[in-house]
């Protein structure tokens, strides 16, 4: 749980999603990444909640949301489908639109939501990614070593599921630790860490999380490439925050990649590993409070 927040279950297209809600003011959707859930926002959500109604779902396949079986085309875990989940949540809660802030996989859902449903996303905040199609296009041996999980998790089921499932806690601990600046689990609160470990021990969620990456390597990527070819743009204001010790910082010029998708872009960086909301919560709050309140 996040202090001061309440939990609701909302069913969208037969998939029941867990949503934590708190605060007061215009709606702000916060979307977590891999291998996490809503708990990654626990340190910053109370700050955002002073001026916004924060809506914090667990993506399908993660946390306390359902984790349906994937389909051969990986449409089930496409970012298009996950974005529709979030639209369904906004519909159920009676919001016409919202500001959306995403980290990691959640940021991929957030920008897909801005592309597919431009009228529903007023402002878009992105933490620690470049778009899926651009990331794959820039692949090299160096990147393949650092982001090995993109090719590993995208292997056909059930190999990654079985390998992770043999010792899920060791896998989760290693993954989290290796992406922090300090190479330490100490940055994660005990509650958050326990929730990340718990979801990885459930075979259905383990499958869902792998399927998220299978979709990234196929369905999501193809959609990005088609949008790029068609010259489609994100029309709302975009704020991009990257961590100095994270993935985008190692991929050339991430701000230039985002500028090719969004004319109204501002970029900031902060001292952190990949998990900026947990490693440097004040930087995340400062960066996006300024952006969403402007």
């Amino acid at each position: 749980m996040i202090d001061g927040f309440t939990q609701q279950k909302i069913t969208v297209d037969g998939v029941t999603l867990s949503v934590h809600i708190g605060g007061d003011g215009p709606p702000l959707v916060l979307l977590h990444g891999y291998p996490q859930n809503h708990m990654t926002w626990a340190r910053v959500a109370p700050g955002f909640a002073k001026t916004h109604t924060c809506i914090i779902p667990d993506l399908r396949g993660y946390g306390e949301s359902d984790a349906p079986m994937d389909d051969p085309a990986h449409e089930t875990y496409s970012k298009r489908r996950m974005a529709r989940d979030i639209i369904g949540i906004l519909d159920a809660l009676g919001y016409e639109g919202a500001a959306v802030l995403g980290h990691d996989r959640g940021a991929r859902v957030a920008y897909r939501m801005a592309l597919d449903h431009p009228e529903r996303v007023h402002k878009l905040g992105i933490i620690e990614i470049v778009p899926t199609g651009d990331f794959w296009a820039d692949w090299s041996a160096d990147l393949a070593m650092k982001a090995y999980h993109w090719t590993f998790l995208a292997q056909d089921a059930p190999l990654p599921e079985r390998m992770i499932g043999a010792d899920p806690v060791a896998y989760i601990d290693w993954t989290l630790e290796s992406w922090t600046l300090d190479k330490s689990l100490a940055v994660f609160s005990p509650d958050a860490l326990a929730s990340y470990r718990l979801q990885a021990q459930d075979p259905e969620h383990l499958h869902g999380m792998c399927a998220d990456y299978r979709a990234g390597a196929t369905f999501d990527r193809a959609l990005d490439e088609a949008d790029k070819a068609a010259g489609r743009q994100i029309t709302c204001p975009v704020r991009f925050l990257y961590a100095e010790g994270g993935f985008p910082a190692q991929t050339g010029d991430p701000a230039a990649v985002w500028r090719s998708w969004a004319a109204d872009l501002t970029t900031r960086s902060c001292v952190s590993g990949h998990f900026a909301m947990e490693e440097n919560p004040q930087a995340v709050l400062d960066c996006f409070t300024e952006f969403f309140e402007a």
């Binding site: 794959w136 296009a137 692949w139 090299s140 041996a141 393949a144 090995y148 090719t151 590993f152 995208a154 292997q155 390597a217």
Partner: peptide
């Protein structure tokens, strides 16, 4: 190394 090779030789 390209993305396609990295996926084949993960």
């Amino acid at each position: 190394t390209t993305d396609a090779f990295a996926r084949a030789y993960w």
